[in-house]
Write a protein that binds this DNA or RNA. Structure first.
Length: 290
DNA sequence: CTCGGAGCCTGTCTGC
DNA sequence: TGCAGACAGGCTCCGA
């Protein structure tokens, strides 16, 4: 499940492999994926590869008209990954690659988009604004304590659910939402708009720290994340709560719990994340609703 | 406007 | 061993 750190890892790697290469074409093997090639596609050269939210963006520039740019966007969805084969490596025929959705060819190699669950997307765009997410990227300078405060204000959503909203902050998914809240010692059911100054400050700090550390470890691998060389990430060794239900908390020894929030697994430590206070709050709220 | 739930999709796990 | 059903979660859409 590629989130911000995984996509960042892929984009950085891909930049090293792809920058300066000429685009040669695309083959699509999934009828759900509609990839319309831009005009004069083979005149395009890769300028850079970067991340926008959870999307990998390949910036292409026309050789003839340097002002003319196109953007190839790839969203990996849940199970998608990109595999790069340099020209000297033998490329498997498309039927031999399971779950191959699309194949992009460049003058020095081939980029395979593989996605078992078909939640991924890809396409060419003429304007970057079309695919620029509304939310703030927590790794940029736009993400400030003030900005976070303003975003959180008045929201009645549970903070864990709130963190997954891409129209507020971009890039945080289920793994890092649980990990960030654990590091910030905030209960996942707390209403986002009710966090106090101290909690917002902790949330701000841990959001930056957790994502930064995950990027340093090249992301988290569970069942399927791979980088463009097929290597796994290393952050799963540093997880405190995610996928650790029933195991002891590394800080306080309490048993880590798994509960569902809007159909998604939330992992948290009842010891570190102040469950008792929250429970009574919840009970009071339920009584009021009843 | 906000919020919650359904639906997409398929490999993997669990229970019979 | 084999099968059925539940589960996982990225996102979008729809309705309250």
């Amino acid at each position: 499940m590629p989130e911000l750190p995984e996509v960042e890892t892929v984009a950085r790697q891909l930049h090293l492999s792809l920058a300066g290469q000429q685009f040669c074409g695309a083959q699509v093997f999934d009828s759900k994926l509609t990839i319309v090639l831009p005009e004069q596609a083979c005149d395009l050269v890769v300028q850079r590869v970067f991340r926008l939210g959870k999307q990998v963006i390949i910036e292409l520039q026309s050789r003839e008209h340097s002002y003319s740019r196109r953007w190839l966007m790839i969203h990996l969805g849940m199970t998608g990954h990109l595999q790069w084969h340099p020209l000297f490596q033998q490329v498997k025929p498309e039927k031999a690659v399971t779950h191959l959705r699309a194949r992009f060819t460049f003058d020095h190699g081939t980029l395979d988009f593989i996605d078992p669950r078909k939640f991924g997307r890809a396409g060419f765009y003429y304007h970057l604004e079309e695919i620029t997410p509304r939310g703030i990227d927590p790794t940029t300078n736009d993400f400030t304590l003030k900005a976070l405060e303003a975003l959180l204000a008045k929201s009645q959503q549970a903070i864990k659910v709130w963190l997954l909203r891409q129209d507020r902050l971009v890039g945080i998914g289920n793994i890092y939402a649980s990990e960030i809240l654990f590091a910030a010692r905030i209960n996942p059911w707390r209403q986002a708009g009710t966090l106090n100054q101290d909690e917002i400050r902790r949330l701000y700090r841990t959001t930056r720290q957790v994502l930064k550390k995950a990027i340093r470890h090249r992301g988290t691998t569970f069942s399927n994340f791979q980088d463009t060389d097929g290597k796994e990430g290393g952050f799963q060794k540093h997880l405190h709560v995610y996928d650790r239900a029933g195991k002891p908390c590394l800080k306080c020894g309490h048993s880590i719990r798994r509960m569902a929030q809007q159909g998604r697994g939330t992992f948290y430590c009842p010891g570190c994340q102040e469950e008792k206070r929250n429970r009574s709050l919840l009970q009071r709220r339920r009584k009021r609703c009843a």
